[in-house]
């Protein structure tokens, strides 16, 4: 890999765009992601920008176990995200289904059956600091050895 590419990747890893999607959670994890935006935790000081546009995202945060309506939609959403990309499962739901993985439920966990997951944060819900820490740990990994995007 050229030095120029290396430099580009380093710079890119300092500016991460995040998109979040709820595929059947109880909202608990979603509001903890929102709390990351608050000046208390201030996710933007680390160069992470949270918005909800998959077309310019690097990291996809997934909350919730997998509900049937998403079967055809989550894959489409994942394909819309440009390379390089990672998906992070937040909370117990996407990992195991948490309390909802019982008889009678409509859900179909885990989410890693449906799209590739790079990291998982257990907790019901995890604390905002844990979410920020995971994204920061992943940031250098996403762009490491990335060759494309030369133009």
């Amino acid at each position: 890999m050229s030095i120029l590419q290396d430099l580009k990747n380093t710079v890119r890893s300092k500016s991460i765009h995040v998109c979040y999607v709820n595929v059947g959670s109880c909202n608990g994890c979603d509001i903890e992601i929102l709390a990351c935006l608050a000046p208390r935790y201030d996710i933007e000081q680390y160069g992470i920008y949270v918005h909800n546009n998959p077309r310019e995202a690097d990291v996809l945060l997934i909350t919730g176990a997998f509900s049937p309506q998403w079967e055809d939609k989550l894959m489409g959403l994942w394909e819309k995200i440009p390379e390089p990309k990672v998906a992070v499962a937040i909370g117990n739901c996407p990992i195991s289904g948490c309390v909802f993985n019982r008889e009678g439920s409509y859900l179909d966990p885990p989410v890693r059956k449906h799209i590739p997951i790079a990291a998982e944060i257990p907790g019901c819900p995890p604390r905002p600091t844990e979410i920020i820490q995971t994204i920061l740990t992943l940031a250098p990994v996403i762009f490491r050895d990335y060759e494309g995007g030369a133009s």
Partner: peptide, 11 residues
């Protein structure tokens, strides 16, 4: 709707 249907009452 139906994107977060969990069926809690059934569970």
């Amino acid at each position: 709707l139906g994107y977060v249907k969990k069926g809690i009452e059934r569970i």
